[in-house]
C-alpha cells in the first residue's frame, strides 16, 4: 500500500491514465458533436477499428506516423459519408444502422488484417515529445523536471491534440454559427428548418466531425499500442458513447469521464501489480472503471437532459 502512495508512483499512474484516456476522449468528443446534432452513432467502435487497422498498416508499410494518422482520418471521412447517407438522407433507424457500421468495421478490419498482415508485427509507437524527430531535444530537459516532467511532457502529440480538442469542441459548439445550428437541429429541428437552417447539411457535417474523430481515435490507439489485432478496441467506442451520455453532452464532463475511466483502470492495474488488490479479485477489479465512472458522472453531471431530437430522423411533414 505504502508503495503506491509514493509521489513518483502516483505520478506514473496519473500519466498512464492520461495516455489511456486519449482514444476514449477523441472518440467521445466526436460523438458529442454528432449527438448534439441529434444523431446517435453506435458504430464508433467499428470506425475506430477500421481507422486503427488503416493507421497500423500504413505505418507498417511506410514507417510514417503522419501518414498513418491521415489514413485514420480519411477512413473516418469515408465511414462518415456512409453513415450520414444512411441515417440523414435515407432516414434509417440510427441504433440499428450504427450496429451495422460496428459489425462491418469489426469484420472488415479483421478481414483486411488477416489478408494483408496475418501475424501482428509491432511497429514504432507514436514518439513522445523528446523523441520527436528534429525538435525532440527541446523537450528533453522538460521531461527531466521532477514529477511534472513525466506527468505533463512524457506524451505523444496525439495526447495534446485530444486535450486541446476539448476547448476547441466547446468553442465550436457554443461560439460558432455552425455550433449553434448543431444545437438547434439536435433540439428542435422543425424550428431550425423554419428559419432556413438545413437540418440535413448540419447533421451531415456533425457526423463527419464525429466519424473523423472516431477514425483518428482508432489510429491513435493502434499507434500508441504499436500493434493491431482482431477487435483491438475491445469496446472503447461503446464506452465513448456511454461517456457522452453520462458526461451530459458537455465536452468538459466527457473529458472528466474519460480521464476518470483511465485513472481507475490505471489505478486498479497498478494496485494489482503492487498486490494491493489480491489475486482472485481480478474479475471484480476489471468492472470497477465502468462502475465508478458512471456513478461519478451521474452524480456530478446529472443535469443531463439529452438533445431532445436525439435518434429522431427529421422529415418536414
Amino acid at each position: 500500500m505504502s508503495q503506491f502512495f509514493t509521489l513518483s508512483v502516483l505520478i506514473a499512474t496519473l500519466a498512464t491514465a492520461i495516455k489511456f484516456a486519449v482514444p476514449y476522449l477523441l472518440a467521445a468528443l466526436g460523438e458529442t458533436i454528432g449527438q448534439r446534432s441529434g444523431v446517435l452513432n453506435l458504430g464508433v467502435d467499428g470506425i475506430m477499428l477500421l481507422g486503427a487497422f488503416g493507421a497500423y498498416y500504413t505505418v507498417l508499410e511506410t514507417d510514417s506516423h503522419l501518414l498513418g494518422l491521415i489514413v485514420g482520418i480519411a477512413i473516418g471521412l469515408i465511414m462518415g459519408v456512409l453513415y450520414a447517407v444512411v441515417t440523414v438522407f435515407l432516414h434509417a433507424q440510427q441504433g440499428i444502422s450504427g450496429i451495422g457500421i460496428f459489425l462491418f468495421g469489426l469484420g472488415f478490419s479483421d478481414l483486411l488484417f488477416q489478408e494483408l498482415v496475418g501475424t501482428t508485427k509491432p511497429v514504432k509507437p507514436l514518439p513522445t515529445l523528446d523523441k520527436l524527430p528534429g525538435v525532440g531535444g527541446i523537450f528533453e530537459p522538460l521531461i527531466e523536471i521532477e514529477y511534472l516532467g513525466p506527468l505533463l511532457f512524457d506524451h505523444n502529440l496525439m495526447t495534446y491534440t485530444a486535450f486541446l480538442l476539448v476547448p476547441a469542441v466547446t468553442w465550436l459548439l457554443n461560439k460558432t454559427t455552425f455550433g449553434m445550428n448543431v444545437r438547434a437541429v439536435g433540439e428542435n429541428p422543425q424550428a431550425a428548418d423554419s428559419l432556413g437552417v438545413s437540418v440535413a447539411r448540419t447533421r451531415f457535417i456533425a457526423i463527419m466531425f464525429g466519424c473523423v474523430l472516431a477514425g483518428l481515435a482508432g489510429a491513435t490507439l493502434a499507434l500508441q499500442l504499436a500493434v493491431f489485432q482482431h477487435n483491438l478496441t475491445n469496446g472503447i467506442g461503446f464506452i465513448a458513447v456511454a461517456l457522452v451520455y453520462f458526461g451530459a453532452w458537455q465536452p468538459r464532463w466527457v473529458m472528466a469521464g474519460a480521464l476518470l475511466y483511465g485513472l481507475v483502470t490505471a489505478t486498479r492495474l497498478r494496485w494489482q501489480s503492487l498486490d494491493i488488490i489480491p489475486q482472485g479479485a481480478s474479475d471484480i477489479a476489471a468492472m470497477t472503471p465502468a462502475i465508478i465512472t458512471i456513478l461519478a458522472l451521474v452524480l456530478l453531471a446529472r443535469r443531463a437532459r439529452g438533445p431532445a431530437a436525439l435518434t429522431k430522423p427529421f422529415t418536414r411533414h
Partner: peptide
C-alpha cells in the same frame, strides 16, 4: 496482474 481480458491489448 490479471487484466480480465484475453484480447484487450490496451490493458
Amino acid at each position: 496482474v490479471y487484466t480480465g481480458s484475453f484480447s484487450d491489448v490496451a490493458l
